[in-house]
């Protein structure tokens, strides 16, 4: 039965975002986000905004709170305090509206191992409300081409290599053409060629989307991001362009600047 069969016969709730000049491109606003796990404060007052067209690189040592912050923006985790807003919708108040606008690649690139690639992508597309058969097929064909999955599309996900699994994860994240893309370590486990492919793909999509990606690879930030946020022990240390970040210490590599910044806080 088509999903629209029982649709409420009134216009959908309009976007509540006030398009005042200069702010209409703001896709994601994170305001003083805090997350406690018991006594441990994983994320401590993180604030930033992202506009359409931005690719934000989220950097930080392991356990810095990158994934937790991303999960709070997607609505998977509830913040202890603070708000995250996507396209004018508050994650806490309108989680469904927010989730419709986000494509998310989880860190583990989780999927259902016994499903084939096509079955899995069809499931995600249907759960995302793409009910029309023709539209579903064209979306499916589109992401399969974009993520180079054609040769494995009828194979069970459990039999795929890590690189292919990662690309299946990216494919499910972009299948509904979301306005906001949140990618937790999208190039993790890929070989250099595949990394290059995924970066190219991300860059190609960035014009009409706001993209957040977390990574350990600093050249990646330099290569594709136009903003970098460094987070350590739950706090934002740096929020600037990669060029400005590199210019902090002339002559040094981006790696060295990163080490210096994050080590300081460990010792302090």
């Amino acid at each position: 039965m088509p999903r629209g069969a029982f649709a409420f016969p009134f216009p959908r709730k309009p976007n509540t975002w006030d398009p005042t000049p200069g702010t209409q491109n703001k896709m994601v606003t994170v305001d003083r986000l805090v997350k406690d796990y018991g006594t441990l404060r994983a994320v401590d007052g993180v604030s930033f905004t992202i506009n359409k067209g931005d690719i934000l690189g989220f950097l930080g040592p392991n356990g810095a709170g990158k994934s937790t912050t991303m999960k709070m923006i997607t609505g998977f985790l509830t913040p202890t305090s603070g708000t995250a807003t996507v396209d004018g919708f508050d994650v806490a108040k309108d989680p469904i509206e927010v989730k419709k606008r986000i494509g998310y690649l989880p860190e583990s690139s989780a999927a259902y191992p016994e499903m084939t690639v096509v079955e899995f992508l069809t499931y995600v597309a249907e759960a995302r409300g793409i009910a029309d058969k023709d539209e579903l097929n064209s979306r499916l064909a589109d992401v399969i081409v974009k993520c180079h999955l054609d040769s494995v599309k009828y194979r069970a996900i459990e039999n795929l290599s890590k690189g292919y699994r990662q690309r299946v994860g990216v494919a499910q994240a972009i299948i509904h053409d979301p306005q906001v893309l949140i990618l937790d370590e999208p190039t993790d486990g890929l070989d250099p060629n595949q990394k290059h492919e995924v970066r190219k793909l991300i860059q190609a999509m960035s014009a009409d989307k706001a993209i957040i990606l977390s990574t350990h690879i600093l050249e990646e930030v330099e290569a594709i991001c136009n903003r970098v946020i460094i987070i350590d022990q739950g706090k934002v240390l740096v929020d600037e362009t990669p060029a400005a970040f590199k210019a902090r210490k002339p002559g040094a590599t981006i790696d060295e600047v990163f080490r210096e910044l994050t080590n300081k806080t460990v010792l302090a």
């Binding site: 999960k71 609505g75 469904i96 509206e97 989730k99 998310y104 583990s108 995302r128 499910q172």
Partner: peptide, 13 residues
Amino acid sequence: SGSIELLFTLPIS
């Protein structure tokens, strides 16, 4: 398997 993250980032209550 962690796929619960996937499930609850879909627009489903």
